[in-house]
Structures are given as structure tokens and as C-alpha cells.
Design a protein around this nucleic acid. Structure first.
Length: 416
DNA sequence: TCTGGGGTCCTAGGACCC
DNA sequence: TCTGGGGTCCTAGGACCC
């Protein structure tokens, strides 16, 4: 029987900020983008949660619930640094560590638990060591169970700063009392379809044969059937087997002042620049450009276009994205969100070098600009046409970086 | 004052080639 | 001359996660 730990950092970004700045300790704070433009809460401190403030809530709503709330701008690099430090602690116990997100990991401790006096003792020891390493204000909760699915459910019972174990003999009761929407992977749409079939909890799901679920949900039906039995079809993928990133992109809500087509165009150029820069910094090049625009009614429009040759050149990304804008009827009168993403990425070494002298010149220029920004910071250099976008530079970010973290950890292992 | 920013995976239809 | 079937690529769109 497997023993899986799910470790989830409590109110992560907020506790990191409280650890870093004693003045914030014991205070209701939230980490968010800029509170002056539309933004959402990325993390709420334990004190802020007592006011009903939750991650995902808009900042103005949070301020309404707690007028003396302190807003702290997010600092993705800081959180990544702390994540690397807690991974260093965890790999001391086992290499079977999956980096699930910037603040969550799975560990397979089937082999190691006994040596530490059992899974519960091991979990408490990990909590103590993380606290000693990261500081008193940064705590974690740990779920223990025979599968990733159940470990993730268990951790919810462990919050905050506790340990909760689901033993194999408890599984039937857990399945019977777990609503389907509590499972990571079942969102509101799927939950609604299931409820129309009379399926409310995981035990209900287990009463339907796999073939029936497959016929209704495609390949996803097979996954649902396994979840219904408390099994998890996805194996634990340790960080050293983490696959390469598949796409790189940026998107941004557009401030009011830039929502006309000219403003949206400059935001698009800014996002293409950042995307190209990230591709180059990772040594990647991608072959498909995806565009996403949102209008004032929250309707999305956009599309994708395949290139002949993979690129990391922001000018090519931008021209392709502009082409997509034109073929989809131009920018909406009021563009509220712009996103660009480059997919089908491969290592830049495998991508052919540009042939045209003009492209080669631009490649040299872009590398020179990268160099300056690496040395003097992101805002050291601006194109005139994106200067208006400088208000966008402060991003919350931080999420969805687990692959980068896992891959950097692989590199650390190789060096040592 | 409705709704951030980073991702992944799946489905389905059409084009094209063998 | 007419027709079939499989594989792959492209595009569009949807659902979901932290």
C-alpha cells in the first residue's frame, strides 16, 4: 500500500511576507496585484481570513470586508526562492517529490515511513524542520493517504498547520462524504453534469460502470471511474522526471486608459516582448502563436497560427499575433484583456537560426536588450510604443511555475 | 467596479497525403 | 475512373488547476 504525503503551505504568499516583515505579523494582509486597478487576492493571511477574505476575491470586495486591510504587492521571485529552500529539505527524505505548484508537493514515503516511526511521525518531523528552516510564520499542513487523490482531500482537514491521515480502512466513509466538486479536476461544469445524473459524492460515482462514464465523458470518464473508487490514475511524477515546459505566454487585464485599439496594440507588443524574453532566457523556441482577447462583455476572441520555423523572436511573435487580430476582426472597441502564448516549444538549439540579415540583426539586438535587463532590471529599457504599459509591470504571478522550479532543481542535482 | 495570470489537457472538424 | 481508410497537421473552443 502506498503512503503519499501532500504538503500544502498555509496562506503561502501572505506568510512569506509576514515572515519577511515583522510589521505585518498578526495583521490582516493580502498579497495581490495592484489594488488600484482591477485585481484579485492571491493569498490572504490567517488574520484576513477571519474577515471572510479568500484567495480569488476581488481586492475591492476584500477591502469592503476589512477596511484596514494591508495590501502587499506580490513578489514571485521571493516565493520561488522560499519554495526552492523547502524542496531542499524534502529531498533529504526521498527523491520521490513531485512539485505540484509553487506551494504544494506530493511525496511518496512508502519506503521511508517506517524508518521515521511511521507516516504520522515523519509528517510532524517534516513540519518541524520546515518551520526551523523557513521561520515560525511559514507553516504547512500535511495530508497522508494511500493515493494522491486522497492525500489532497486529507490536507483540507489538516489546515492550518496540522496533519490528517486517511487510512485504507477509512476510504469507504471518505468516498461517501466527499462531494464530487471537492476533487481536484472536477470543476463546476462537470459537477453540474454529474448532479443531473444523480451523482453528488464519490461513492455515487463508483456505482456507475466505467463504460457508461466513458460513453458520456470520453477519456475523462475512465478517470472519473477511478476517482470514484478512491484511486488516482496519475502517478507521482518526481521533479527529476518533470517534462519540459509546453508553452510560454503572458496575459494581462488592460487598464481603462489603454482599452482602445491603439492601447491594446501596445499592450500586445509589451506581452510579446516579455514572452520572447522568457523563451530566450529558457533557451526555448515555439512554433504556434496563440492570441486571446476579451471585450467589455467578457467575450473571448482569438485564435492560433502555426509558424514555419520555431521562434523566440518577439517581433515575429508580435507580427503573427497582429495578423491573428486582423483575421478576427481587429481589436474590440474596448479590449479588457490581452493574452499571447507560444506553444509547441522545443529547445532553441534545435531551432534553425534565422537566415535573413535583418532577422539576425534583430536577434543580436534582442540579446543585447536581454543583457541590459538582466543586469539593470526589467524596467531599465522600454520601447517607446510600450512605455504606456509600464503600469503593468507589477504582476502577482508566481503560480504555474512548478515546471521551472522542478527543472532548476534537476539542474542543481546534476551540479552536485 | 464583476472576473488576475500562469499553465495543461481534451474534443472535433477540415485539409492533405499515401 | 471511383472510392476507402488511416495518419498527421492545423484551427477553434472548452474545461480545469493553483
Amino acid at each position: 500500500m502506498l503512503i503519499i504525503l501532500h504538503i500544502d503551505m498555509d496562506a503561502y504568499f501572505a506568510s512569506v511576507e509576514q515572515q519577511a516583515n515583522p510589521a505585518l505579523r498578526g495583521q490582516p494582509i493580502v498579497v495581490s496585484g495592484r489594488p488600484d486597478i482591477h485585481s484579485v487576492v492571491a493569498a490572504a493571511s490567517r488574520e484576513a481570513k477571519t474577515y471572510g477574505i479568500r484567495a480569488g476575491m476581488s481586492t475591492w470586495e476584500a477591502r469592503k470586508l476589512c477596511p484596514h486591510l494591508t495590501f502587499v504587492p506580490g513578489d514571485p521571485d521571493k516565493y520561488e526562492t522560499i519554495t526552492r529552500r523547502f524542496l531542499d529539505v524534502l529531498v533529504d527524505y526521498t527523491p520521490m517529490v513531485e512539485v505540484y505548484s509553487i506551494d504544494e508537493v506530493f511525496m511518496d514515503v512508502t519506503q521511508e515511513a517506517d524508518r521515521h516511526g511511521g507516516a504520522l511521525c515523519l509528517a510532524r518531523e517534516i513540519q518541524r524542520r520546515l518551520r526551523a528552516t523557513l521561520g515560525e510564520w511559514i507553516t504547512c499542513s500535511i495530508g497522508i493517504a494511500p493515493s494522491k487523490l486522497l492525500a489532497k482531500l486529507a490536507v483540507e482537514k489538516a489546515k492550518p498547520a496540522g496533519v490528517h491521515r486517511i487510512c485504507p480502512q477509512d476510504v469507504p466513509q471518505v468516498l461517501a462524504r466527499t462531494p464530487v466538486e471537492d476533487v481536484c479536476g472536477i470543476g463546476p461544469r462537470i459537477a453540474r453534469r454529474l448532479s443531473h445524473m444523480g451523482i453528488w459524492n464519490l461513492a455515487d460515482l463508483s456505482r456507475y460502470p466505467e463504460g457508461y462514464l466513458r460513453a458520456r465523458f470520453g477519456v475523462y470518464g475512465a478517470v472519473l471511474a477511478m476517482w470514484g473508487r478512491g484511486l488516482d490514475p496519475s502517478p507521482l511524477i518526481p521533479y527529476w522526471q518533470e517534462e519540459e515546459l509546453k508553452s510560454v505566454g503572458h496575459s494581462h487585464a488592460v487598464p481603462k486608459a489603454l482599452r482602445d485599439p491603439e492601447g491594446a496594440r501596445s499592450v500586445l507588443l509589451y506581452l510579446c516582448e516579455r514572452t520572447g524574453r522568457r523563451l530566450r532566457s529558457k533557451g526555448l523556441a515555439g512554433r504556434v502563436v496563440h492570441l486571446d482577447l476579451r471585450d467589455a462583455n467578457m467575450h473571448h476572441r482569438g485564435g492560433q497560427r502555426a509558424l514555419e520555423v520555431p521562434t523566440d523572436d518577439e517581433e515575429i511573435i508580435f507580427q503573427t499575433a497582429l495578423d491573428l487580430v486582423r483575421s478576427h476582426g481587429g481589436f474590440p472597441g474596448q479590449t479588457t484583456m490581452v493574452g499571447v502564448r507560444v506553444g509547441s516549444v522545443i529547445s532553441g538549439k534545435e531551432a534553425p537560426r534565422p537566415l535573413l540579415p535583418e532577422q539576425r540583426r534583430r536577434e543580436r539586438l534582442e540579446h543585447a536588450m536581454d543583457h541590459i535587463r538582466n543586469r539593470y532590471g526589467e524596467s531599465a529599457l522600454w520601447r517607446g510604443s510600450v512605455y504606456a504599459c509600464r503600469v503593468l509591470t507589477q504582476a502577482t504571478g508566481g503560480m504555474g511555475r512548478q515546471k521551472e522550479i522542478a527543472q532548476d532543481r534537476q539542474a542543481d542535482d546534476r551540479r552536485s
